[in-house]
Design a protein around this nucleic acid. Structure first.
Lengths: 305, 305
DNA sequence: CTGAAAGCGCTTACAG
DNA sequence: CTGAAAGCGCTTACAG
């Protein structure tokens, strides 16, 4: 075939608008160039950061991402896993998988890369996990708070958490020489209600001058502190977790945080999968060093009695 | 075939773990049961709300969603459109398409449902658009601010916006009897820098007691107001746009807003596509009535001189 | 009613 | 080097 001919064919293809059918090609090559992502829920902007990172690297490797959301429904989660298998995704990323081991069996049997993210339940303990351990960084924060004179730390969160952050906080805070206390908040509580609840908690515990809280409880916390006539950081120092790039611009001065680069986490998750597709499965748990302590004006010396 | 046999076959299939290959089935049926979603960027949590709504309805109809992100790169956007075509998505949702008309041609020719979201550039004016018009609601807000004694409204935003909100604000605000002024912010500006910039703007314009600002500029705005020793709502009333469910919990008291139910928008976008797949294309622009005025303590009577 | 064949749109090994 | 055939895993129209 002459060079000129090949050129003319190419030209004709462009003119006629021929575009190869990727599905047909992939059927022939028995792959789909598709990576499944199943979210257990979509309740924090951090998931968009993650998706952005994933999407960027997957794109670069020619993969497309099939996202879905179980919306906190375990049965739905299982169904989504089955669907992902029917679609023969080349790899599956699972946000906090819980009680889905049976549905994952076809993937495991077929040797399809299947990676748990953020956390996983007991039954899925043989499914490789990628996480960003925050214990060390929480330790840095706790030490700093102790240095600033704080002696009692309050951790605010909902009850269930597969990533089990309370244990990390409790351990790190005790080690630093502060008393750890926990306040459990009902999941999905309204901000106004949370404000009242935290007002009582704070009023009853003036010694808890260091506070760790998650993004979704920040509004209620600020409201409570305000309502009590207290202020940040004069009366209470506040630290938050994995703040999203997308919400950072909402608070000024910005909060001190156990920061996690979630976008980068997304990129590295795909890297792991990519290597796995190349034949090397990851270890049972891959700890990504993506957490860092970010100190801002929301943290200061503990008030003197 | 006896009923018992059919039952035994079904059983055997389950035991052996047989799951039909959806790709092969879809090739035969020349469809993919896949809907493409291309984001021009992923810079607000609102996009996760939208994705959640889309995902829920698409799921219900048996469709999967292929998301991608052009990350503000026009060439990348065009490439993603080509990729979506190669994958033969059954329908394509485009967040603010701009200068991609040529790449959309194969979809248009093939009669594949292709829907623009939020806004579209001039060249894409024949691609049906779904939006949530906010003019009326901005009018309600403006009237309310006038009623509260405000006479000058400041609108803060970046320069480019396909949805062109400034025109709506300008028109509505003037109609209500307030002077509209605009302050253009550099895209991607840091919160601290924005705080300084807005401090100067506000100091120079004490009469602008009503302020309209987007989520990403709120931190800087709060900082500026604080820095000037002013407060909300005593000195300035603040209104924001399409606040995300995901960030609502971050601010207390909550902000007044031109609220848009973005999750529902996602659901209805899929409904439109679903009807289109059934044979009825939508009108050139579908205006969804999903905006509402939410008044909170961030808005109050204008200060008396 | 049952079973084999054709075909969806590709790629690749193979014969000419 | 070129061209026709086989096959990826399904569904459906068709012959027996």
């Amino acid at each position: 075939m002459s060079e000129g001919l090949s050129e003319r064919v190419r030209e004709a293809a462009t003119t006629l608008g021929y575009r190869a059918n990727a599905g047909a090609r992939n059927l022939r090559l028995s792959r789909t160039m598709t990576i499944g992502l199943i979210y257990e829920r979509m309740d924090t902007p951090v998931y968009l950061d993650f998706l952005e990172g994933m999407s960027a690297t997957a794109d670069r490797h020619g993969y497309s991402i099939l996202v879905s959301n179980a919306a906190s429904d375990p049965a739905h989660y299982r169904q989504l896993v089955r669907r992902a298998y029917e679609r023969r995704v080349d790899a599956l990323l699972l946000s906090t998988p819980r009680d889905v081991r049976a549905e994952l069996e076809p993937f495991v049997t077929a040797g399809v890369p299947t990676l748990a993210l953020f956390g996983r339940s007991q039954d899925c303990s043989d499914i490789p996990l990628a996480t960003v351990p925050q214990g060390r960084t929480i330790g840095v924060a706790a030490d700093r708070l102790h240095e600033l004179g704080h002696r009692r730390a309050l951790y605010i969160s909902t009850a269930t958490s597969l990533s089990d952050r309370w244990r990390s906080v409790e351990a790190a805070v005790s080690r630093a020489g502060l008393d750890p206390v926990r306040h459990i908040v009902e999941s999905g509580i309204a901000t106004a209600e949370l404000r009242e609840e935290l007002s009582r908690v704070l009023a009853a515990d003036p010694a808890a001058t260091a506070i760790f809280a998650h993004g979704r409880h920040l509004g209620g916390l600020f409201g409570a502190i305000n309502q009590l006539g207290e202020s940040i950081p004069d009366d209470r120092s506040v630290v938050t977790f994995t703040d999203s790039r997308l919400t950072a611009g909402l608070i000024d001065p910005p909060l001190s945080s156990i920061h996690v680069d979630t976008r980068e986490f997304g990129e590295q998750a795909i890297d792991i999968v990519e290597v796995w597709l190349g034949g090397s499965p990851p270890r049972n748990v891959t700890a990504l060093d993506l957490a860092s302590w970010r100190e801002t004006e929301s943290v200061a010396a503990a008030p003197t009695r």
